[in-house]
Amino acid sequence: MAIRSFTRPILYALLIALSCFYLMPVYVMIITSLKPLEEVTLSQMWQLPTSLDFSSYSEAFTKLAPNLLNSFYLVIPATLLSALLGSLNGYVLSKWKFKGANTLFTIILFGMFIPYQSILIPLIQFLREIGLYNSIAGLVFVHVVYGIPITTLMFRNFYASIPDSMIESAKIDGAGFIGVYRFIMVPLSITGFVVVAIWQFTNIWNEFLFAVTITTSDQQPVMVALQNLSGSQIVQWNVQMAGALLAALPTLLVYIFLGKFFVKGLLAGSVKG
């Protein structure tokens, strides 16, 4: 279905206007990142740089590069593990309901709302006890744990849209808990995995509080290194913006390449939320 053709120009005008609004901050980031430092002031924020200066990018890149790898070591396993855990939980809680399953889901979901600032101290002490403090593994662990509620929610909603009759017939064919998961749920939820993976990838990539408090120097992911570019008193915004754009590239690529699946995945899953 489409709005009739004579309204099309209005439609495009609207979309372009909205896109301009969405790109406005990006425009400011890009021009700021290309300016020499003395031009980075509030009064000149809209002005194009007098000459293109890529030194911010090279400076940001040299400082961020070592930490970029840390971020991948962190984000990839954390995303995979939390997607796997979430899908198992979602599967059990939507298709193998037992007495109290909904209550249990409620209890798990509630964990999403815990303010992380308040639990830093016991968390850091716990990680030190088990020897995971100041390690990427520790950070992976934390993100997997605190990712359980939201991944469970997403997968549970996703699986709710898979008709129970499919499961029943598979059971009659002799498939058990594992068989149903492996041969019905997983293949049907590839797009669901994409949605959850994109969500977790972005959030873990951009997460700062855990990263800065759980890791030091060599172990730090890129978002902390990005903050490290600024000082305790003086911030060089051109380098900061260049760094921010560089650090956003992996997530951006994820969106560009998986954006289609993102919508498809949501389409397959959340309609029956």
Binding site: S19, N206, M223, L226, A248, T251
Partner: peptide, 16 residues
């Protein structure tokens, strides 16, 4: 257009 509207999600709150 879709990517333009998705793009901000890829950035960190600290910068935006």
């Amino acid at each position: 257009f879709r990517n333009i509207f998705f793009f901000p999600m890829a950035l960190s709150f600290v910068v935006t």
